[in-house]
Amino acid sequence: MSALPLHQAGHRFGDRDALTGLSFAAAHGEVVAMVGLNGAGKTTALRVLTGRLRPDRGTARVLGEDPATMRPTTARRFGHVVGAALVSGDLTVVENLRSAASLHGLPRADVEHASADVVHRLDLDAWADAPARTLSAGNAQRLGIACAVAHSPSALVLDEPTSALDPRGVVLVRELVRSLADDGAAVLVSSHHLDEVARVADRVVVVHGGRVVGELAPGDEMERRFFAMVLAADAEADA
């Protein structure tokens, strides 16, 4: 069973179609990357998958449950960063991590260890006691991801997880994502960076016009193959 399936999702914002029958799935142990141009529907799809938006049609499931109404026992195994993370600017890095781990259902006895572990994994030790609002954009993004994974989720959704990161941060997040998947988690990431997704993803799905228009095999000339796929989808839509 797929951990993160989206089936025939459709949604309109006013008179604009955001999703037009979008379907894909991420299985346990797999990193699936979703790539597409701005406005393709990636973030809308991720909002549906995290329960933040109920689609006009179609279904979303996280670990077998509707993400909008999932039980706490299921939510305990889920993590996400779509847009703003579970971070308060007034709290320090460590306080944010402890709060996030608690809200994700980690037992109180485990919160301290889990927070310290993820601080170290994402190289945030130097800022552990700094208020989150004082962090650079890159460190804030790493903190957001840390808050989403402090409880070691079995299903993880990340929207543009490396958009503000320096090369070292990109490597850290890549290693984290890969290691979670190697431990059996289903990971779905959206990205504009084709080179980056080629390094981390097992599968790359191309979203355009609110639907999946194909899959790209990670490898050479991804950019050329991506644009060929998008142009073919446009031509098909115009025909």
């Binding site: 909002r47 995290t50 706490p72 939510a75 960063v81 703003a84 579970l86 608690s102 994700h104 259902g105």
Partner: peptide
Amino acid sequence: GRAGACFGLAT
């Protein structure tokens, strides 16, 4: 949009 982070939590 920060409220979106409150979805999908065990709490």
